[in-house]
């Protein structure tokens, strides 16, 4: 008789994984970061959020509280490999201080990452 843990492990489903971008958490006191397309390789900044609220592109409420920590979503502009993310981080580190990076994957074609409000 399998244990509950063994049963749980047996139900795991393998999915097709595709690397599609990076969420990068940048620390800056100089306001909303700006990036030129392709500045750090085959990535394009799709949006920037602060405390979960989208602050670029588009309208930012003057009432909005912002802290010095920005989530910058970079989507790949072509099919990419892991080493291109590593190169991207090396290049970006020359200009920006960042606290963490989270790779973005699609799982069986579905986004494994949330959008920002």
């Amino acid at each position: 008789m399998p244990t509950f843990t063994q049963e749980a492990i047996a139900t795991k489903k393998k999915k097709k994984i595709e690397l599609v971008g990076v969420d990068l958490y940048i620390i800056t006191d100089k306001g909303i970061p700006q990036f030129a397309d392709g500045e750090f390789g085959p990535f394009k900044c799709e949006f920037i959020s602060n405390r979960g609220t989208k602050v670029w592109p588009g309208f930012v409420s003057p009432d909005l509280l912002m802290v010095n920590w920005y989530r910058c979503r970079f989507m790949a502009t072509k099919p990419i490999k892991d080493h291109e993310v590593a190169d991207f981080l090396v290049q970006l580190s020359k200009k920006w201080e960042w606290s963490a990076a989270q790779k973005l994957w699609n799982y069986d074609g579905e986004a494994g990452y949330s959008k920002a409000y």
Partner: peptide, 14 residues
């Protein structure tokens, strides 16, 4: 406005 409602979620593996 914040806490785990900041809409920052990821599938970090399958």
């Amino acid at each position: 406005t914040e806490d785990s409602y900041a809409a920052i979620e990821h599938m970090v593996s399958d």
